[in-house]
Design a protein around this nucleic acid. Sequence first.
RNA 1: GCCACCUUAGCUCAGUCGGUAGAGCGACGCUCUCGUAAAGCGUAGGUCUGGGGUUCGAUUCCCCAAGGUGGCUCCA
Length: 672
Amino acid sequence: MSINVVVNRETTPEARAVDTGTTGLDLFGDDRSIVAMAVNGTTVDLATLVKDGDQISPVLMTSPEGLSIVRHSAAHVTAQAVQEIYPEAKLGIGPPIVDGFYYDFQMAPIGPDELGAIEKKMQAIIKERQRFVRRVVSDQEALHEEANEPFKLELIHDKGGASADDGSSVEVGGGELTIYDNVRRNGDVAWKDLCRGPHVPHTGYINAVALTRTSAAYWRGDQRNQQLQRIYGTAWATRDDLKDYQHRMEEAAKRDHRKLGAELDLFSFHEHVGSGLPLVHPKGGVIKREMEDYVRARHIAEGFQYVGTPHIAKEDLFYTSGHLPYYAEGMFPPLDDDGQAYRLKAMNCPMHNLIFSSRGRSYRELPLRFFEFGTVYRNEKSGVVQGLTRVRSITQDDSHSYCTPEQAPDEVRHLLRFVLSLLRDFGMTDIVLELSTRDEDGKKKDKFIGSDEQWAKATKILSEIADETGLKVVDDPGGAAYYGPKISVQASDAIGRTWQMSTIQYDFNQPERFGLEYVASDGSHQQPVMIHSAKFGSIERFMGVLIEHYAGAFPVWLAPVQVVGIPVASSFNAYLADVLGKLEAHGVRTELDASDDRMQKKIRNAQKQKIPFMLIVGEQDAEAGSVSFRFRDGSQRNGVPIEEAVEFVRDWVASRRNDDPKAPTESPDPVA
RNA sequence: GCCACCUUAGCUCAGUCGGUAGAGCGACGCUCUCGUAAAGCGUAGGUCUGGGGUUCGAUUCCCCAAGGUGGCUCCA
């Protein structure tokens, strides 16, 4: 194996001791390890990197570890630039994160306008190629050196209390305190920061960095603490990588469901309705209806019974369920009707419980599965609503399975398999499971009800079944519902962002609260276990995710308009209308573009609407009794006899396939 | 809920250092009847998000509200 590296032997004493016999190699590190960081340079054999028994770990700048080091170093340069411009700014923490880094400061609020000046200063620091020099200090020295940095002092006292998003401490670690100095060529220390490291050898390694946004963030992520100003940036090994990243962000913005929702006329929001309350337009309605129809049919096939419940109920019901007071702040305030308080429902389970208990239940009926599209209302805080992915009226494809304790594991297994198969039917295949459990270290223990034994048992069942799927399972301690642990399904969209979709929750509390029971085979009264599950989580969110997943180019079966007829001139309208009529007889959704636009313009419009089939007819097709296809990918299939074309489209629509129709590729040279 | 930023025609955006506004697309009308991503000409369309204040005068400056964007916190 060989890597590309560049040399500077003066970085550390350890590095100086290594003579690799090559040029262009930069070594840096600390007492425990020496690291060679590679950039685009000459190729060096790794064997030459071992000297006098020292093992040198090579880090490619483009590797995850290398990028993380580069980003963390970029965070330092950001902080250095900020303190040069705003000397009163106090340092929080500055860890690397996915695709970049941030640094928190206590300072007057800044906005995007200030970022340009900071970036300019950073470029100057980078140009100076200031060396990052690691220094081990005693607690006393650290306290003395960081006397002007109150947040760092707090970290020194706590020895590493602050953690980055990934849970690791970036400031303090390994049992000893270290300070990194940024040293100029002439030996002056330009800046320093309490930091665990490691860092790149010098600031010149940070050659592709950009500040991206500002924000406020609570010190140590706790709402009770003061808010600091956070500056986010992105950094990459090369400028090309940075450009690629920026390009990816632009592409992601293009498929933003909020933008596509307007462009494709799927849904809208109106300030007179309220934040987070979507209005579904006819074309969005088609998608919603197709989703619901399919999901309803699948549920019925899987043994669920379709039920219906009202949107409001007397407040007492939610006290019985425990949602009040546990979930009070997520619910809308009470509606008063002559002294009787009603609430908009924030969940469907209490009402399903009442259907269960409406008559005596036998063990022979179990598992009993109720399902509905229940719209629930959650009073999300003003800052959190976002497009369709975070709304205040949520249509859940909600089901509750009531079963005997013995049946519970199989029911969970059944539900999980069902959920995964449904997601696959919608083209979502990149799936990660999350196991949300009670917070065992007790910080929020009062948020959960039930005995330790119940929790342990339920958690064990879910954990084992999650593992059975062979999918990646991520732990989410403290993320459980108040009544029990849950498995949630995170699906990735086409550009790799993950979204929480489905959820399967094990509930031993509500059956007790509602006094649910069934008569067992021995005549005794027993309490069922209840399993909540939502397959899409919310129809709205899933629709938003689907829009982004397909970038608006829905598979044929979901496309609001499946076929558009485009006449070359208006004299072919009647001919096309006839063809479209044949398709509609098979349930195909069609439109005829009879506008005054040129054919080219109509194609452009259909293309922008991402309609899967364009049927084009001019004189040639009209005379031949045929039509010509143009597919979304731009490919064509011309002169197709009408009957064949109708059959082709009909079959495609009926198949619910998720791939995209296109012209058959030419067979590769049949004669030769 | 917190911080920053944003809100001008249906959409995307100019503009006014305080003197009540403009383009492109879209819509509508007319002409053209055309073979695979934008024909030409014309017309209509705005209490410059809402309310209050400062001012002779506010779309522009200040305050409040609503809605949105990016984060934080939260998310059954």
